[in-house]
Computed example of a mutant assay.
Amino acid sequence: MSPEAGRGVVARLNPVAKLGAALAIALPLVVTIDPVSALVALLLELPLLLAAGLSPRQFWLRTLPLWIAAPASAVTIALYGATSGEIYVEWLFVRVSEGSLMLALATFLRVLAIGLPAVVLFVTVDPTDLADGLAQIVHLPARFVLGALAGMRMLGLLADDWRALALARRARGVADTGRIRRASGMAFALFVLSIRRGSSLATAMEARAFGAPGPRTWARESRFGIEDVLLVVAGVAISATALAVSIAVGAFNPILGPA
């Protein structure tokens, strides 16, 4: 799975820095659910999103699930969320109140504030570069990193195998009717094929000393420079500013505390 080309400054940075910035933005916003912190974070993220260098088509296609999930979550919270304040609509299990509408707005902004930077930052990440950074910079176990990388590389083959199985079964006239029966049979065949390919891949990796003890060498050095540090600092600054503004205006609403 090759990353889409990005011409922005952020696209050329280390994948570990992108991961750190995304976590720095997301984790503090999980603590509270209020529209102020999410809105402030979303506004501060705009320069970061523009610096990724994605074209408008790439941006909207990649973030389309978020633009569907955010309104859907907001509507659900508005109809069935915690009731407080004035009640506007009440019918059976549906109860729209002032509090549920505020929670719906906070949920909508929160999904976008957490999801947009995570998606945009990882569009230009190459799995091999990410694995190099996790092993060399974060110092995760090489066996775990390389195994995960091999698994990610196999994801593209699963789609190809599914199409090949469908064409082969159609050519033989097998399961021409019954979508559920056909899908279950193909899923089982794909499962067996994946186990066989995984066993062959594991044997090949062991033969190439991927599981050997001791430190291993890397074909490409993963560098973490000053620009990468600035990206992580920007992520921390965005979340800290959002929380500070929320607390200052009295909108801070901790999830574990009273609503």
Rank of each mutant, 00 (worst) to 15 (best):
D132A: 14
Q136N: 01
G115Y: 11
T124G: 11
P141Q: 08
L140P: 01
H139P: 12
E98T: 11
S97L: 13
V119W: 03
L103F: 14
L105V: 12
A150Y: 07
I137K: 04
L121T: 03
V94D: 02
E98S: 12
L112Y: 04
G133A: 11
M102Y: 14
L140S: 06
L103E: 07
L103I: 07
A142D: 14
M152D: 01
L149Q: 00
L109Y: 07
Q136W: 00
A148N: 09
G99Y: 08
L130F: 02
A131S: 10
L112M: 04
V138R: 09
G99C: 02
E98Y: 04
L112I: 08
F122Q: 05
G147N: 04
A148D: 02
M102D: 13
A150W: 05
V120P: 03
L121E: 10
L109H: 00
V94R: 03
L149F: 08
V111D: 01
S97I: 14
V111F: 09
H139Y: 15
V96F: 06
G147D: 04
L103H: 03
R143M: 06
D126W: 09
D129Q: 12
Q136F: 06
G99W: 00
D126S: 08
L109W: 02
L130I: 00
L103T: 05
V96E: 03
V123Y: 04
L105T: 02
V123E: 09
L105I: 07
V94Q: 10
D126L: 00
L134M: 13
Q136S: 01
G99H: 07
G99L: 10
V96D: 05
A150H: 02
H139Q: 15
